[in-house]
Each structure stands twice: as C-alpha cells, then as structure tokens.
Amino acid sequence: MTSLAPVDTALLLPMATHVALAALLYVLLTIARAPAIWGIGRRADGSNPWATVEPRISANLSNQFEWPLFFHVACVVLMLLGTHHAAIALAWFFVAGRVLHSGVQVLTTNVRLRGLVFTVNFLAVLGLWGLLLQRALAPA
C-alpha cells in the first residue's frame, strides 16, 4: 500500500471560514423565514418583519455556491501541490471580501458597492489560479 504525500493544510482555515460564513447565512435565512413558515416572530398584523431582507439573504447564500467554488478547488489543488505565503494571503483576502460582500448584499441594496466588493473576491480567486498554474506548470 502506498502512502499519499503530506498535504499542506495552511489553506484549510480560510476554506473552513468560508464554510462557516455559509452556515451562518443558513441560520440567518432560517430565522428570517421563521415568521412565514412557523409563525414564530410574526408581527401583530401577521406579517413577517424580515420580509424585505429574506430575499437578500437567500440570494447571498446562493452566491456562496457560485464563484467560491473556484476558490475551494484552487485551494485543494494548492494544498496538494504545496502553498506559499501569497496563496495564503489571497485566500484570506478572498474570505474577508466574501464576508464584506455578504454584509453589503444582506444589509443594503447598493448594487454598485456590492459589485466593487465582488471584484475583490474575483481578483483574489484569479490570483490563486495564477499561482496554481505557475506551481503546476513550472519545470521541476
């Protein structure tokens, strides 16, 4: 039986932090939907006090399974190939950007600001893929 090469786990914490963000969004979505689904927390008139924010939480949660997919794939491959400080910095930059993006999307309706914050996430992932390609294609 052959053993696998050791895996560099430095990118695991930023990945786990992004998973925790998605879990938090699930909790927030459950709370926001509770008045409509279970009747818990309804206003006296029967309305949902979270009705305006619930669609934004839902949309943001869906966003966590779009572009971040490329983040997670790059991190896994970089863990197998070996990471360096630039990849770790880009990973944390991505996670900070995702947290900021979630805050902007859930708490505001400012699409322009959300787009600017998304650009941070977008560039961080492109940077990770650039490092990945450089690492994978460099002569041994």
Rank of each mutant, 00 (worst) to 15 (best):
L90N: 00
A59V: 11
L69V: 03
V120R: 04
A22L: 13
N48C: 06
I37W: 10
P49C: 09
A86I: 14
P55Q: 13
L100A: 15
L107K: 02
V106Y: 04
A74K: 09
W67G: 09
L116M: 13
L123P: 05
T9E: 14
S47K: 08
L25S: 10
A91K: 07
W129N: 05
W67I: 10
T109V: 10
L123S: 03
L113Q: 09
G115Q: 14
L12Y: 05
L137T: 03
F94H: 07
D45V: 02
A23C: 04
V27E: 06
V73R: 06
A16N: 03
G82K: 10
L116P: 03
Q105G: 03
N110L: 06
A96Y: 00
G103S: 08
N60L: 09
R43W: 08
A32N: 06
A96T: 02
F93A: 14
Y26R: 08
T108L: 05
Q105A: 03
L21D: 03
N110Q: 09
A34S: 13
A32V: 11
A51P: 04
L4Y: 03
A20I: 01
A44K: 08
L25P: 00
E66V: 07
R135G: 02
A34N: 07
S3E: 08
A91D: 05
I31A: 10
H84W: 12
V111I: 01
T108D: 10
S62E: 12
G39P: 06
A96K: 00
Q134W: 15
A34E: 01
W50F: 15
T83P: 01
L29A: 14
W67A: 15
A87N: 09
F70K: 05
V76A: 15
